[in-house]
Every structure is written in structure tokens, then in C-alpha cells.
Design a protein around this nucleic acid. Structure first.
Lengths: 337, 337
DNA sequence: TTGTAGGCGTTATCAC
DNA sequence: GTGATAACGCCTACAA
């Protein structure tokens, strides 16, 4: 059987070859109906582009940024970095949020395909196999930032040294004399959460301590998540004397829970956060936290994307930027009990 | 002689009517040579468009958001609101930052014109006369959010009740017994700053107090701006017992200055901020501030833009959303001195 | 009837 | 030559 070419598809779809080419390249001048038929045929035949890309499509001057959730000022720092690089490269940045909703992801992908985007950066959101295949057919490059799950080795991705961050935070607390140290991670499904908690466990084990099951919690990345988890921790028969929160927003919840229970930070409970968002120095007490270079992560992801777009080789498909413990006032020696 | 129509031109140029139409509307898919011929004929015949414009150019599916400075999480809330509306309307949102630089503004405008943007929302940034004219020629609508200067009456704009906010904040402090109340505004050139400070003055006057010159300062909207201004205020022979800061970020600077001088908030100095960003409840003490519905402002601006794009009439060219004083812990009665 | 948008084929061209 | 793509302009449908 001969290799499937555009001509094959065109014949079956009763259109001209250029029309198929247009669908493949996301041009807008194809009727939605026609496009659907052609896309189906392309999938059915498992069409593969020739490896050496043809005269490359220098059409739109866009790149896309998809952030799962724009509401947290977490994403802003990344956005800022991406915007800067896009601006320098003379590319327009299209921003969207998908709020963990599959329908929005599909919609975004659809709009991306019918536009002339050169590539996409996905933050804390992920695509399923079919969606990846669709992008691959179009040879639309994408880069993951803090992907949901471990990305396939051939997908470029950017992250922070979450494991090392979790380790450093916990080690710091151990060094202050704490032995009952709790962890509140973000959603358990997230790669970054798992790495941070793994770092936490590892630090405990390295000191001969054990992570008691009750002391590890998972909660959504916001104040109320932290509040709720910390409440339960404080209600334990043997409450922790220190808490490693997997994000600064979670840490604000821990503060609220401590305050509600009349616990003073750090005298009665030390707290360490993660992210180092810009308000942490002004919290009271100022939050000890693991700094994550979010803006730089955005810059790195955007530069990576540009390299892929320009057909340059990546030195590495995975970049992890260093985290650093920032010690402020919310962590202190364990109180003699 | 019959009136000159596109058909006349088309016949003479040996092209179809749609092709002439495309030249007239600046579409790109006409060869330069053909376009030149047609443009010459159009000029020679003195072609006039009919007065009632036909279905106008529904070109790209974009709208643009230009934020002067993305770095502050101030803009994030607005961005979120705009994104939501754009998504609902099936439009892609292009985001850029211009950092108060004229060159970047020019570049952005250039890219906007060469793209297929349907319109733009400008946040805390402004266009000069020529730039406005350029947009008008293309009939590209735009909406201002918190414009730099008072917008011309025919330009749609969205803001908050800054005057009322400044008034409420100051009245609150007066009610607590303060008489030496300082204000730290943002940059003096900004409309929102002037309105907030005017509200402050007005409240003082309404209570028979006077705004001493030394007690009104202007500083850039960030921590260090507030720190610097507050330092100078505390160094006065008669320092203020309360400070109204024109933004929450400025207020964080006031906190730092107070701490550095050993002043307790609110016992020795009350502080009121402006914006109610998401971290203010976790500051210590929790910041009393004037809430500004930033997200809703983004929504309102985007909806306004859509109406203009669709040729609908606006009920009003100026929308001001209400501010509200949120009393927390950073404001308290004047200490007996 | 005039003008416009969308859709798609024709042609030229390019890389192999 | 062959596969794929960019450029261009006509046809059709439709809106005023």
C-alpha cells in the first residue's frame, strides 16, 4: 500500500490538494464542515508529514499561553516572563485559561488550530493523547510548565527543583529541632506536589524520622484548602509543631487556622511555604518559604518554544530551575513542651 | 453618466467585483500589481463608498489587552475578567505590556494594525492623539481602564469610584479621632491618584481639617515607593498618626517603614490601603483597605468593547464601579499622646 | 442592485 | 518528477 499523501485524502474528500494542505496548516479559509471531514480522514489514514518540513509556515505571528487557572497570582509571574520573551521576538501572546475543564481545553485547541499559532506553552494543564497527536500532525510545538504528570521524554518541559525545595524546607525545620512535622501538599495528582512531598519524606528519613500518615495532607492550592487541612492537623491528638505547606496560598490558610486556635507562629507552630510570592514578606510573621523562580520559568519555557519553532535542537528536553529556601520569621526553634 | 460602481472598475481592470472590493477593504490576498491598477482606477473615477457602510469587516477573532505593567498582581484581576468575557465570546485574547515606554506602545499598535484585532482594552496606559486617529481610521474600537488622564467624552472608559474611595478611607480615619492624616498617592499624573487624593482632601475639609502640604506625597505604586514616602512622613517634626496609602502595595511599604522605626500598627500609626488585593487579609496586622472590584472592571470593559465592536449603542461612555471600605486591623483609634 | 465574506480551485513554486 | 505549500482571484451566497 502506498504511503498516504495529501492527494489520497483530497480524492476521498472530494477537494483539491491545497485544501487539505490548508487544513493541515490551520488556515482559516476552509469551511468548518470540510475541515471536519478532512481531519477525520487524516486521522483514519494516520497521515504523517514527511520528516523534513517543507517550506515552513511563517504565517501567524502568535504563540499561545494556556494557564490552568489564572486566578492565583502564581500564574502572573510566569505570564510576565513569557510576555517579555514574546515581545522581544516580535510575537503576539494569546492567553487563555482552561480551569481544569476538558471542554475548555478542547475549545482552546480548536481555536488554536484554526488560527495561525506557532506554538503553545501549557502551564499546569495537560493534553490527552489524542490532543497531542493533533498538535503533532500540525507540527505545532508545545512546552509544558509544571505539567500535571511526568511528561513523555520527548516533550519539552520546564519546572523547578521541587524535590530539592521540599527537602530543604523540611531539613530546615528538622534543624530547628522539630520532629513532628506535617506537610500539606497541593492536589495529589500534580507532579509538583508529589515531588515536594517526596522531598519532605526524604528529608525526614535522612534524619531517621518517619512521615506519619496522619501528617501528610493534600488540598487545593488556595487559602481555604490550607485552612481546612491545618485545622485537621491541629485537631490531632499529637498535633505537629511545624508545617511545610506546598504553596504560599496554602500557608495563608495555615496562618488562619493557627490564629483561630490561638497558636502563635513560630513559637507554637513553625510554617514554611512554597513559591515566595510577592506578598510573603508582608505577612505577619513574614513567611519562611521556598523560592521558585516563576518568572524565569516563564522565560525559559518561551525560549525553549522559540527554539523548537525555529527548528533548533534543544540541549535538553527538561529544564529544572533551582529553588532556594528563604528564611524569614515564620519558622523557629521547637518550643520546649 | 452612471455613478461609478465596483463593477465599472472591475470591468476596466479585468478582474472580478470581489477583487475590487478586497482592494477597497485592504485585504491581503490581492497581488501588488493588481492592487496598484485597481487603486489607480478607483482614484481616477473618484469612487465614493455608499454612505451606509455595508457589513463591516469582521476580520480576525482577536481582542487586545494592553496593560502598562503586568508585574503587579493588580493587573491580574483585570486580566482575569477580560479573559472570561473573551472566552465566552469565542475571541482570542492577546496580551501585552508596554511598561510606560512609548516605543513599546508604537510597536504594539503596529502589530495590532497588521493583525486582525477587533479592538483593544488599554489599562493604565494611554495613546496620543495621532495614535487615536490611527485607530479611528481603521475603525478599531478601544476602551480605557483607569486611563492616565481624563478620557475624551466619546472614548469609552471604565474606572472605580476613586474619589469616593479616598473619601471613605479618610472619613474612617477621622472617625477614629485622627487629625494628622497623611496621604501617599501613586504617580501624580494618574487620574486615579488625583481622584483618590481629592477624596482625601475633601473628607478632611468636610470635617474642618486641612491637608497640610507636607502630608501629601506621591510615589510609584510599589513597596519601595511606599517605604520611601512613609520614611519621610515619619521623619517630620510632627509625624502623622494615620496614613492613607493609594494602593495596597504602597501600604506594604508603609508597614516596612513603621517597623523600621519601631512604630506599632495601628496603635501608633493607622494605615488604610487601596485595592484589596488577595493578600491583604494575611498581612500583619490585616490591612484595612478600600476594595476596588478589579475583576468586575475587566468584565465591564470587555463587555463594553464587544458592544462597540457589534455596533451597539453604549448606555454610557463612562462606567465607574463602586469601591467599598473593608475595615480590618490596621486602623484604630488615635493614641492619646 | 451594490458590496462583502467565505470558500476553494488554479497556478506557480519550492524542496527533494 | 513528486509532494506540499504560498499566492491569488473567481464563484457563490448573502446582506443591505
Amino acid at each position: 500500500m502506498p504511503r498516504c499523501t495529501l492527494a489520497t485524502i483530497a480524492r476521498e474528500a472530494n477537494v483539491s490538494v491545497p485544501t487539505v494542505s490548508k487544513v493541515l496548516n490551520g488556515h482559516s479559509d476552509v469551511a468548518a464542515h470540510t475541515r471536519a471531514i478532512i481531519e477525520r480522514l487524516l486521522t483514519e489514514h494516520g497521515y504523517q508529514r514527511p520528516r523534513s518540513p517543507r517550506r515552513s509556515n511563517r504565517r501567524g505571528e502568535f504563540i499561545d499561553l494556556v494557564i490552568n487557572d489564572l486566578d492565583s497570582n502564581w500564574g502572573l509571574a510566569i505570564l510576565t516572563g513569557v510576555e517579555q520573551v514574546a515581545e522581544e521576538a516580535g510575537l503576539t501572546l494569546a492567553v487563555s485559561a482552561v480551569h481544569n475543564r476538558a471542554s475548555l481545553t478542547r475549545r482552546w485547541l480548536q481555536s488554536l488550530l484554526s488560527r495561525a499559532s506557532q506554538g503553545a506553552i501549557l502551564v499546569l494543564s495537560d493534553l490527552d493523547e489524542a490532543q497531542r497527536a493533533e498538535l503533532a500532525r500540525r507540527t505545532l510545538p508545545f512546552v509544558l510548565v509544571d505539567g500535571v504528570s511526568a511528561p513523555p521524554p520527548d516533550v519539552p518541559s520546564v519546572g523547578a527543583t521541587n524535590f530539592a525545595g521540599g527537602f530543604a524546607a523540611t531539613e530546615h525545620l528538622i534543624g530547628l529541632g522539630h520532629t513532628r512535622i506535617a506537610a500539606i501538599g497541593g492536589p495529589e495528582s500534580l507532579l509538583c506536589t508529589r515531588a515536594r512531598v517526596a522531598g519532605y519524606r526524604s528529608a525526614l528519613e535522612a534524619s531517621g524520622l518517619r512521615a506519619h500518615r496522619d501528617l501528610v495532607r493534600y488540598a487545593p492550592f488556595h487559602h481555604d484548602g490550607g485552612l481546612d487541612a491545618a485545622r485537621r492537623l491541629f485537631a490531632l491528638a499529637e498535633p505537629p509543631t511545624a508545617i511545610f505547606a506546598g504553596s504560599d496560598h496554602l500557608a495563608t490558610g495555615v496562618y488562619s487556622a493557627a490564629r483561630a486556635r490561638g497558636l502563635r507562629i513560630p513559637e507554637q507552630c513553625s510554617v514554611v511555604g512554597f513559591d515566595d510570592l510577592n506578598f510573603t514578606p508582608w505577612m505577619a510573621p513574614a513567611l519562611t518559604t521556598v523560592r521558585q523562580p516563576l518568572r524565569e520559568m516563564g522565560v525559559a519555557a518561551a525560549r525553549m518554544l522559540l527554539r523548537v519553532i525555529n527548528g533548533e535542537r534543544l540541549d535538553s528536553h527538561r529544564i529544572e530551575l533551582a529553588t532556594a529556601l528563604v528564611i524569614r520569621e515564620s519558622s523557629g526553634p521547637r518550643a520546649p513542651h
